Amino acid sequence: MTTAPTERLWSAIDVAAFLGVPIGTLYQWRHRGTGPRAGRVGRHLRYDPADVRAWFNKKAA
C-alpha cells in the first residue's frame, strides 16, 4: 500500500460509500478478485485510498 502518512486507510464502509455501491457488492468483488486491492490490519479489512482511486480510474477507462 502506498498511503501518505497523513491520510488514513479506508474501511470497507468508506470504500462502498465512495464508490456508491452496497457493501455486499464490495465483498463479492473481493471474493472474485475483481475489486480494489485491500489488506488486513489485524482482523480488519483496510483499503488504501490511492489504490481505490487507481482501480476506479482503470475501470472507468
Results as ranks from 00 to 15, higher is better:
residue 42 G to F: 05
residue 32 R to Y: 04
residue 22 P to W: 03
residue 33 G to H: 08
residue 22 P to L: 04
residue 15 V to P: 08
residue 41 V to H: 03
residue 17 A to H: 14
residue 32 R to T: 10
residue 16 A to M: 06
residue 36 P to E: 00
residue 33 G to F: 02
residue 36 P to A: 01
residue 5 P to R: 08
residue 41 V to M: 05
residue 39 G to C: 05
residue 26 L to G: 05
residue 57 N to G: 07
residue 23 I to H: 08
residue 57 N to L: 13
residue 43 R to T: 11
residue 13 I to M: 11
residue 25 T to Q: 11
residue 21 V to T: 05
residue 10 W to M: 15
residue 45 L to P: 03
residue 19 L to Y: 07
residue 20 G to F: 10
residue 40 R to D: 00
residue 49 P to M: 10
residue 52 V to C: 09
residue 26 L to F: 01
residue 31 H to G: 09
residue 30 R to M: 02
residue 4 A to L: 11
residue 54 A to I: 02
residue 58 K to F: 02
residue 17 A to I: 12
residue 40 R to M: 04
residue 42 G to A: 06
residue 38 A to T: 04
residue 49 P to A: 06
residue 9 L to F: 14
residue 9 L to I: 05
residue 15 V to C: 03
residue 17 A to C: 09
residue 30 R to W: 01
residue 32 R to I: 08
residue 14 D to W: 11
residue 10 W to E: 05
residue 35 G to I: 07
residue 50 A to D: 05
residue 55 W to E: 08
residue 37 R to E: 14
residue 46 R to Y: 03
residue 38 A to P: 08
residue 53 R to A: 08
residue 61 A to Q: 15
residue 18 F to Y: 15
residue 37 R to T: 13
residue 54 A to G: 06
residue 6 T to E: 14
residue 55 W to F: 06
residue 16 A to K: 05
residue 14 D to A: 02
residue 45 L to F: 07
residue 20 G to D: 13
residue 5 P to I: 05
residue 44 H to S: 04
residue 14 D to Y: 07
residue 50 A to R: 08
residue 41 V to I: 03
residue 5 P to M: 01
residue 60 A to V: 12
residue 12 A to R: 03
residue 54 A to E: 12
residue 55 W to S: 10
residue 7 E to I: 14
residue 34 T to F: 01
residue 18 F to M: 07
residue 54 A to Y: 00
residue 12 A to F: 03
residue 48 D to E: 06
residue 12 A to T: 00
residue 19 L to K: 03
residue 46 R to G: 00
residue 17 A to T: 14
residue 12 A to W: 06
residue 60 A to G: 03
residue 57 N to H: 13
residue 47 Y to K: 05
residue 18 F to W: 12
residue 44 H to R: 15
residue 28 Q to M: 10
residue 3 T to I: 14
residue 48 D to L: 01
residue 52 V to G: 00
residue 25 T to K: 10
residue 7 E to Q: 14
residue 3 T to R: 14
residue 23 I to V: 15
residue 58 K to D: 12
residue 5 P to E: 07
residue 25 T to A: 04
residue 3 T to W: 07
residue 55 W to A: 10
residue 6 T to D: 15
residue 39 G to F: 06
residue 32 R to E: 13
residue 27 Y to R: 12
residue 51 D to E: 07
residue 56 F to V: 09
residue 39 G to R: 04
residue 60 A to Y: 09
residue 24 G to Y: 00
residue 42 G to M: 02
residue 23 I to F: 06
residue 5 P to T: 09
residue 51 D to R: 09
residue 40 R to G: 05
residue 15 V to I: 01
residue 21 V to G: 00
residue 43 R to P: 01
residue 6 T to H: 14
residue 25 T to P: 08
residue 54 A to H: 09
residue 13 I to H: 14
residue 58 K to Q: 15
residue 6 T to Y: 12
residue 28 Q to I: 04
residue 58 K to T: 13
residue 22 P to K: 10
residue 61 A to K: 13
residue 16 A to Y: 13
residue 58 K to R: 15
residue 31 H to Q: 13
